[in-house]
């Protein structure tokens, strides 16, 4: 399997002139086609880590290789391009655009992707929503959808540009058990199709699906 992420980083926050160390010499690597779970107690730095991996936070020390490119050396444009095509990020709170319908939310990341032709966008969005069992919800606004449905729309959005890496920060944190199972199954399927799926979760359920579980503790990884 191909290695898509390799990092060796150090991260600390600075809050009111006080340094809050989160992790030091954190070495990790991820391969495509696998389902990873990152676990650990609250405040151990799981979100911090996945945000860095998702290129949402570039304030860290050390090296982070994504598809063998050192992201610290990339320009803003190149970073934006990586976020657009290589990564699909799923948030705990779904974070859909409330003024856009389900399928429009899915189309949104495609608007800046030159590889997808404008006339193919809607078709592709509908296919993705279809795949996630939302074929009769495509014209709904987020507030007209249940939490589980919203999260599936968010997954469709993450898949919009067919990225290799799917990152999810507690994707089932706001959902009930039934929906949690659904979401984990979908993510598992994606990893089987060759994507690198990395999920941060509190829930022990995730262990059932994960190929590899990383436990984060005191800024270190225990496998």
């Amino acid at each position: 399997m191909k290695e898509v992420i390799n990092l060796n980083i150090e991260k600390s926050y600075i809050l009111k002139h006080k340094i809050i160390p989160v992790f030091k010499d954190l070495k990790l690597s991820f391969e495509s086609g696998k389902f990873y779970a990152i676990m650990g107690h609250s405040g151990c730095g799981k979100s911090t880590l996945i945000n860095i991996m998702g290129l949402l936070d570039n304030e860290f020390k050390g090296e982070y290789f994504l598809n063998e490119k050192n992201v610290s050396k990339l320009s803003n444009k190149e970073l934006a391009n990586l976020r657009n095509k290589e990564i699909g990020f799923i948030f705990q709170e779904f974070l859909l655009d409330k003024y856009l319908k389900a399928y429009e939310n899915v189309i949104f990341p495609m608007l800046v992707n030159k590889d997808i032709l404008p006339k193919e966008r809607k078709k592709r969005a509908l296919e993705l929503l279809n795949m996630l069992g939302l074929e009769d919800r495509v014209n709904h606004f987020p507030k007209e959808l249940s939490g589980g449905e919203q999260q599936r729309v968010a997954i469709a959005r993450a898949l919009a540009n067919n990225p290799n890496i799917i990152l999810a920060d507690e994707p089932t944190g706001d959902l009930d058990e039934e929906n949690e199972t659904k979401i984990f199954n979908i993510l598992k399927e994606l990893s089987k199709k060759g994507k690198c799926v990395i999920v941060v979760s509190h829930s022990n359920e995730v262990k059932k699906y994960a190929d590899i579980v990383y436990k984060l503790q005191d800024g270190k990884i225990m496998e």
């Binding site: 998702g54 949402l56 803003n76 976020r83 974070l95 949104f108 990341p109 992707n113 919009a160």
Partner: peptide, 8 residues
């Protein structure tokens, strides 16, 4: 979100 999804 736009930034996270690759908008410059």
């Amino acid at each position: 979100i736009q930034k996270a999804y690759g908008y410059s």
